[in-house]
Design a protein around this nucleic acid. Structure first.
Lengths: 348, 348
DNA sequence: GAGGTCATTGTGAGCGCTAACAATTCATGG
DNA sequence: CCATGAATTGTTAGCGCTCACAATGACCTC
């Protein structure tokens, strides 16, 4: 078939065919109660017959509601952002909203600004910003935008309404688990410093050690990629036998690289060095060995974010006040076995 | 700040402030050439001053163009779909289009139909359907929709305009590589039978073996997950020493499970059994051992899909004729080493 | 100086819908 | 039988923009 420019039927066309006024058609479509069944049937029949679809632009213009939300994200092929995106869309759709997305290669003032402008062109009523980099958050605070914005993954120390997984707590769970398993200290491979989540995880790790009266070793740094984990793992391997028996890695992908580097260096996991990751990506369970990690509940993040944004749009919540924090969960697997008898699923 | 319902300024407001007609404001915004510089400056100043933004609904209504495209996808947290989604959005944005997405948990006639209706509510001018399941494609062909639809990942045997990576060729590359490395035969762990891509990969594998005069073993089946790969791997381990020396696995995630199962069974990769995957997910390079696999160029898929859809929307291409196929690429790593001296990057 | 051309600006009419109000119908009770 | 009000339907006026066309004025040309 070809999509010729024959103009699609309008409400008036339907009304004519059904022998009613266009307003009655509108009432039928809007499920207005005061329409006689017989009339409704006539209208529905005409709609069906003509293949009529309500013009969303005209509707949006008249109602001043587009029922569209925007999402700005980066690194959308990573498990975390992809999962959040999925949850956001599902939650928004459940509320009758369409979601338009902009996926950025990098978050800067410029790209963010363009993204918001682009979404504005799409007529969004509000925007969720998956903005894990701190620079992005600052940019967001500066930018003028005619709609409310909710930040996700920015940490709670920002001006903007935000929803976050409690990264500090997650790191505490991971580190505490290793200490409880008998390790004297826990090393740390951190994520990029300009990511708030990375900083929070490092802070949680450090705080846990300090509370246990342990002087934290100097953390290593990576960029979330398996490759950076691999490189850090090579360095870590050099410390085995000199006090290194446990590592908390800031995400699962880097942990994968660490595992490989350790293996290549002849270091056994978990017998020589225990490893904990963060995220619980689907592959983690099948790493060599299966990875103990911290699971984030992205579905809840999505739901809460949409709920908050809709509150803001409807004016139910004064913006600037809202901070939502969500608890993560430790998942114990073989990479910290046999030090971990207390909880979690056994590996398959 | 609060988003009070003070009505945002309209074009007429700007016009009044700048002392011109609303049409002149429209011209400035539309970069119409015949506007005096002085006038343009006045208008731009007024726009800036009032924080004016063009109302997209009104614009869409008047122009009959929403400049919005829709995407229906499932399994969006998997690497392949997520990468395609990213590429699609980027390509569409480059053309000035906003992208609205619907992420489905499963593709059925009902969910697809709802998704299209939802996107229609969002005013899309066309839709890309990431529809790897065959059932979905059939559903797509049946459904009435007032806009063009391009299918991605459906294989080329469908009525609908489509864009695909040549899965058959990919399987041929993988299987051929193993045969060329000296293996007598190649076993196969297939994806779900209702996925066209899985079928095409199996067909490519079978054809390559038959052309080499080898009777293909019975393929195993999985569901793309590492777990299903793990289970299949346990079974495969039982065939080692009885003719099994090489396995072509239909995706990297399942290959991960296979690797683990083999390892646990004391089977060495690649010395005892060589393994090839499909997708080249970022983690593959860091599996134990690093995985030989087939890379799909999702960026090109995205660009070509958008280009095709826009052609359809503009009426440049008669729909129903267009099939685009994209070549995949073999990436050789240690899981087929040392049988593979001929090409590809060495493991890190 | 009349007529013509071009650049620039303004005017009016819709795009297809919903909201507010007006009009009509119908059942009901006094 | 007619007033009363509820249920149902119709009428009108925008929503904020772009498009087609009209109007204005500056500048030439002969």
């Amino acid at each position: 078939m070809t999509y010729t420019q024959l103009r699609p039927p309008t409400m008036a066309d339907v009304a004519r065919m059904a022998g009613v006024s266009h307003q009655t058609v509108s009432r039928v479509l809007g499920d207005h109660p005061n329409v006689r069944d017989e009339t409704r049937a006539k209208v529905l029949h005409a709609i069906e017959e003509m293949g009529y679809r309500r013009n969303s632009s005209a509707r949006a213009l008249a109602t001043r509601r587009t029922r569209t939300l925007g999402v700005v994200a980066s690194n959308t092929t990573l498990y975390g952002p992809a999962s959040t995106l999925f949850a956001l869309e599902e939650a928004a759709r459940a509320e009758g909203y369409v979601v338009s997305t902009v996926s950025l290669r990098e978050l800067t003032v410029e790209t963010l600004s363009e993204a918001l402008a682009h979404l504005s062109q799409g007529g969004v009523e509000g925007v969720i910003a998956l903005a894990p980099q701190r620079s992005a958050v600052e940019a967001l605070a500066e930018l003028r935008h005619p709609f409310p914005v909710v930040a996700v993954g920015t940490g709670s120390g920002v001006e903007i309404p935000s929803v976050n997984v409690d990264q500090f707590l997650g790191a505490r769970l991971a580190t505490g688990h290793l200490l409880a398993s008998g390790h004297r200290t826990v090393w740390h491979l951190a994520g990029p410093e300009d990511w708030q989540e990375a900083v929070d995880r490092t802070d949680g790790w450090r705080a846990t050690l300090e509370e246990a009266g342990v002087q934290p070793p100097l953390p290593l740094g990576g960029d979330w990629s398996p490759l950076s984990g691999y490189r850090a793992g090579q360095e870590l391997a050099g410390w085995v036998g000199r006090g290194l028996t446990a590592v908390f890695v800031a995400n699962d992908q880097m942990a994968l690289g660490v595992l490989r580097a350790l293996r290549e260096a002849g270091v056994r996991t978990p017998q020589d060095v225990a490893v904990v990751g963060f995220d619980d990506i689907p592959e983690s369970e099948f790493f060599a060995p299966p990875l103990t990690t911290v699971r984030q509940d992205f579905a809840t993040v999505g739901k809460r974010s949409i709920a908050l944004l809709l509150d803001l749009i409807e004016g139910r919540t004064p913006s600037g006040t809202s901070r939502v924090a969500i608890e993560p969960q430790l998942v114990v697997r073989a990479s910290t076995f046999p030090y971990a008898p207390q909880s979690g699923a056994a590996p398959g």
